[in-house]
């Protein structure tokens, strides 16, 4: 891990502990020896109130590359997560997380998780990442909403 990567991640952790958006959590994982692994975090994204995603906290994993913040972190929901912009593997398709698109080293962890929360209820139909959710979102909204609500129950608070 480069020193820049390490110091930035320490700073991100410090900032998060000092102040983070309501209902979210994010923490570095623990290595077998009990020390913190800053390169691999687990976090939770609450669904926005008054949406079909509400009353649930969706788990994500955040993997920071060695050359973070030059390169963006890789963020995954659990495999099979139901959302038009989430690949079957769970990887999230979001422009701010794509180095070729809108990733900028200045983007903070807080901005990322808020961006993901926004994406939950505002899928981008132009960048499909999985067949079932994308098709249902476009053509069969009742089924889509039913599936999303079922998923919300699974991750309910």
């Amino acid at each position: 891990m480069s020193s820049l990567c390490k110091s930035r991640l320490q700073e991100e952790r410090k900032q998060w502990r000092k102040d983070h958006p309501f209902g979210f959590f994010a923490k570095p994982s623990k290595s077998p020896d009990g020390s913190l692994n800053l390169m691999y975090w687990t976090a939770g994204i609450p669904g926005k109130a008054s949406t079909i995603w509400e009353n649930a906290v969706y788990p994500i994993t955040i993997t920071f590359p060695e050359d973070y913040p030059s390169k963006p972190p890789k963020i995954k929901f659990p495999a099979g997560f139901y959302h038009p912009n989430v690949y079957p593997s769970g990887t999230i398709c979001l422009s701010i997380l794509n180095e070729e698109e809108d990733w900028r080293p200045a983007i903070t962890l807080k901005q990322i998780v808020l961006g993901i929360q926004e994406l939950l209820n505002n899928p981008n139909p132009d960048s499909p990442a999985q067949e079932p959710a994308w098709r249902a979102f476009g053509k069969d909204r009742p089924t889509y909403e039913k599936k999303v609500k079922e998923q919300a129950l699974k991750y309910s608070k």
Partner: peptide
Amino acid sequence: RTHILEFLQQSQGSGFCPECR
């Protein structure tokens, strides 16, 4: 200074602004 230089090095000498691309 050191951070933008390191960033530039990782982008093979020609990069985008980390703030505005």
